[in-house]
Amino acid sequence: MTSAELLGVFESHDAFLKVIEQAGSRKVTIREIFSPVPDHHAVERLAGRKSPIRYVTAAGGIAGLVAGIALALLTARVWNLVVGGKPVMSIVPVVVVGFELTILFGALATLAGLFFFGRLPFVRFPVGAYREEFSLDRFGIWLECEVSQREPIERWLRESGAVRVERIGRPDAAEGIS
């Protein structure tokens, strides 16, 4: 698929939120949003797109559980520490180690996933579509769509309240500023 990238610049917060809401039905992908202040309304509207981090967390947690239980059981087996006449390989005491490593590995995996999917750190900041006004008083939405859909999407952005629409990352970007 040949894709095109567009940047919608908004003065109105309501218009900005409305475009985020409607983006799914327009078959466009939101690459990034820009806001001068932390905006949980926008984040909530984006939340419909489920984060892949949960899979990383689950994988980390399961790996931690297995590692913790294996560590405790194998250590006991190698060293044969008999305590209170209990069997060397018992499930009761290893639950604690398994639980602790589930939390530890789950948390570390989440952190790693956060960095990876959040594209942190921003070594190339500002990204291509960033404009200084997004740190002042404007909101921005960086969209990706099929090239054939570019003009209807541009029209939709303007009709939705965008004060400016730019074409991003293409040789014709400059002439596309409207």
Binding site: G84, K86, V92, P93, V95, V96
Partner: peptide
Amino acid sequence: FWSQYLTIWYGN
């Protein structure tokens, strides 16, 4: 629950 159970289990 587990802290209580584990202690009883170990003490035997």
